[in-house]
Amino acid sequence: MATKRKPRLAVWKFASCDGCQLSLLDCEHELLAVTGQVEIAYFLEASRAVMEGPYDVSLVEGSITTPGDAERIREIREASKFLVAIGACATAGGIQALRNFADVKEFAAAVYARPEVIDTLKRSSPIAEHVFVDFELRGCPISKHQLLEVVGAYLTGRKPNIPTHSVCMECKMRGTPCVMVAAGIACLGPVTQAGCGALCPAYGRGCYACFGPMETPNTTALAAWWRDELGVEPIDIKRALRTYNAGSESFRKESEAYEYADH
């Protein structure tokens, strides 16, 4: 058998907070196992040493918000055999996709002394809107367990076990009584993809949908129940849907139904 070269891993950043890349560093002792199996070829948050492409696996954090981004992601795609978009920014446009519902020029004028030097796109968009993505790993931030699962699955050549069903399934497996049913707390768990281990409901909070829409989200029925049975104001339904995954198709559409709600 010929000597096997270790697969080269690259970690890229676009418009984002770096939290998802940090999840990789947070792997701590598992990180050593990762570096034992892959060559970290490009990961500026961890090391200045960079290797030329091509790369076997690229983990891409962040959303596309500038014309320069849109060009750079194409280059990264060309240099990568397997590309994984990680986190809510890369998979849905992130919190910065709130700009998609407003006028960016207005924001720029309000924030910057010289708005004319700001070269930005009207929309913050996920990676898959620009290039082919092999796998999308959700979360704000991503779960390190899921990240290790995806990397491990890639190395073994198997399908990653990343469920796309609701958070409720995890909540029930954990044994947490439903916060919506038992306490009347508005919770996005039924329309949100699992992955966090149903963290917030376990601490008596409603789900904030960090992992974005589940596979078949019925946001309309959930929002109607919030409004009619839990007394949630329409504007609060809109706000709940417009967070880290505001740019996802189903959350965007549902929130737009409450666009002109002012109470």
Partner: peptide
């Protein structure tokens, strides 16, 4: 189906 969230809670409980 218009009301069902397909969340799976019924089967879990």
């Amino acid at each position: 189906a218009e009301r069902c969230l397909t969340c799976g809670n019924c089967t879990m409980v």
